[in-house]
Simulated scan of single mutants.
Amino acid sequence: MLRRTLVRTGGLTGGGVLAGSLWRGAAYAAARGSAGPYGPLRAPDADGVALPEGFTSRIVARSGRRVGGVLWHPAPDGGACFPAGDGWIYVSNSEVPLLGGASAIRFGPGGEVVDAYRILSGTDLNRAGGRTPWDTWLSCEEIFRGRVFECDPHGSRAAMPRLAMGRFRHEAAACDPERQVVYLTEDEPDGCFYRFRPVHWGDLTSGTLEVLCAGSGAGPVTWRRVPDPGASLEPTREQVAGAGRFRGGAGCHYADGVCFFTTKGDNRVWAYDAGNECLRVVYDAGAPPAGADDIAGTLWGDLYVTVDGGDMEIDLITPDRVVTPFLRISGHPRSEITGPAFSPRGDRLYFSSRRGARGEAAGTDGVTYEVTGPFRR
Rank of each mutant, 00 (worst) to 15 (best):
N126W: 07
G111E: 05
E141N: 08
T136H: 10
L98Q: 14
R147M: 11
R179N: 15
I105V: 15
H154P: 00
L120N: 08
E141H: 11
G122S: 11
A159G: 15
E150R: 14
G87I: 07
D152K: 08
L120W: 07
A102N: 02
S121L: 04
R127G: 06
H170M: 11
F82H: 05
T123K: 14
T185Q: 09
R157I: 01
F144V: 09
D135N: 15
M165R: 08
I119N: 13
A164Q: 09
D86R: 13
G129M: 11
L184Q: 10
P153Q: 11
D187Y: 04
A102V: 06
F82V: 04
F149S: 14
D86W: 02
E142R: 13
S121Q: 14
P109C: 05
G155A: 03
G108L: 11
E95S: 03
C140K: 05
D176P: 09
E141V: 07
L138N: 01
F82R: 09
H170I: 13
R157P: 00
S156Q: 08
D152C: 03
E95L: 02
V113Y: 00
G101L: 07
A84R: 12
G166Q: 05
I105H: 00
E186N: 10
S92T: 15
S121W: 00
H154C: 06
E186F: 09
V182Q: 02
I89M: 03
G146T: 06
L98A: 12
V148R: 06
F107I: 09
A128Q: 14
G166D: 02
R179E: 13
R167H: 14
S156M: 10
P109L: 03
W88G: 08
P153E: 04
P161K: 06
N93S: 13
T132G: 10
G130I: 00
I89P: 01
Y117H: 13
I119V: 14
C140F: 02
A116Q: 00
T136D: 01
G129T: 11
D176M: 12
P97Q: 13
W137K: 00
L125H: 04
Y117R: 08
T123F: 01
E141Q: 15
G85C: 12
W88S: 13
G129N: 09
